[in-house]
């Protein structure tokens, strides 16, 4: 049970029950759609940046498991007010932590609350759930593709 609690920390469960920024964003100037065909997770990320490349507003909607939904909720809260460059850097740190490439102690320092997702690295099949919103956000900002898939 302890490993399960390690993955499903209270913060994750809270954000799953009451996701933040869980709505479409009229006036968004960046948008992307993310799929995980394996389990049916499906999210839209909406972003409004200002003329200085600062993320003014960021929201999401869609459906998915607790990990993916909490990740999207915490990510949107975290990125609000950050620059596009900072968001991309955060994507890389987050990705490295959940895939176990770097130690959560060091990598998570700059990620604050997002440290709760460090437990995911022990559940390889769930890494995609945690990172789906992040990949979708990155796609929205870099506009390489408008629909991304984990497969």
């Amino acid at each position: 049970m302890s490993e399960i609690r390690e993955l499903y920390q209270e913060l994750i469960l809270d954000h799953n029950r009451n996701p933040q920024n869980f709505k479409p964003l009229p006036g968004a100037n960046h948008h992307s759609e993310g799929f995980n065909p394996l389990c049916g997770d499906h999210y839209h990320i909406y972003i409004k940046t200002d003329e200085n490349n600062i993320i003014e507003k960021i929201t999401f909607d869609g459906k998915g498991c607790a990990i993916s939904k909490a990740s999207a909720s915490l990510m949107t809260s975290f990125l609000k007010g950050k620059t596009v460059e900072e968001a991309i850097r955060a994507f890389e740190s987050f990705h490295d932590v959940v895939t176990g490439k770097i130690d959560p102690e060091t990598g998570m320092a700059e990620l604050g609350k997002l440290a709760v997702f460090a437990g995911v690295r022990d559940f390889p099949v769930r890494v995609k759930c945690a990172s789906l919103a992040w990949h979708t956000m990155k796609a929205a900002l870099t506009e390489t593709e408008t629909v991304i898939s984990t497969e």
């Binding site: 499903y8 389990c39 498991c65 990990i67 769930r126």
Partner: peptide, 12 residues
């Protein structure tokens, strides 16, 4: 409760 979350907990 999303099936994927159930699946992980059942697996444990």
């Amino acid at each position: 409760i999303h099936p994927h979350d159930i699946g992980t907990i059942l697996d444990m």
